[in-house]
């Protein structure tokens, strides 16, 4: 595999792989996604306190869902890593509650024109900037953010202010949602 194993969010464009899975059920593209993401999902779940067995199970289940829900992936609203993270998070909670987690309704998808590639690229760049900003937070603050996602913090301990610059990425996603709504109402 051409891609290095140990890079962080500063990644090649994994979204292209998801689109290949969506469009042509491309098993090679899927194998690359699996090689990169499945071990990270497993690592993340173990950090969250899951047993190795449960983490393995959830990681596999997450990748099954990546395959089956590839048609719902919108690269202008989420990077590949973000989208896969949300699936892994849901699997973790489903296993914990033994019932399906409530999710907001899926936004419509289907025959509308392919999202602008440039928008997807900008979102990917914003996600990379966010990863850098997270790395550069003072250690204490970064630890609080990480612990929140590992489920180590109670709700009241969640920070009101993370110190992360979320403004730009939020407005990009907001714009993508606006455009989607417009397309749907035309």
């Amino acid at each position: 595999m051409a891609r290095a194993q140990n890079q962080s969010c500063l990644e090649p464009d994994w979204s292209a792989n998801i689109l290949r899975v969506r469009d042509t059920r491309d098993e090679t593209a899927f194998a690359e996604l699996f090689a990169h993401f499945a071990p990270r999902i497993k690592g993340f779940l173990i950090k969250s306190g899951a047993s190795a067995t449960m983490a393995e199970e959830c990681a596999q289940e997450t990748m099954v869902t990546v395959w089956h829900k590839a048609h719902l992936f919108d690269p202008t609203r989420a990077s590949a890593a973000t989208w896969i993270f949300t699936i892994a998070r849901n699997k973790k909670i489903d296993a914990f509650r033994r019932s399906a987690r409530p999710e907001p309704e899926d936004l419509a998808w289907g025959p509308e024109p392919e999202p602008e590639a440039s928008d997807a690229l900008v979102l990917q760049q914003e996600t990379q900037k966010l990863a850098k900003a997270l790395e550069q937070l003072p250690k204490k603050q970064r630890d609080i953010v990480r612990r929140a996602y590992f489920g180590d913090l109670t709700h009241s301990e969640l920070a009101q202010e993370t110190g992360l610059p979320l403004g730009t990425i939020k407005s990009r996603i907001r714009l993508a949602l606006n455009r989607l709504r417009q397309t749907l109402s035309e």
């Binding site: 990270r40 999902i41 993270f85 990863a131 979320l166």
Partner: peptide
């Protein structure tokens, strides 16, 4: 929705930073 998606992007970065555990 956009605000939550932004925090999900943070979660993805946390996940990507985790040490990989082989399946």
């Amino acid at each position: 929705r956009a605000l939550v998606s932004s925090y999900e992007a943070v979660g993805a970065c946390v996940m990507e930073e985790c040490d990989s555990v082989e399946l």
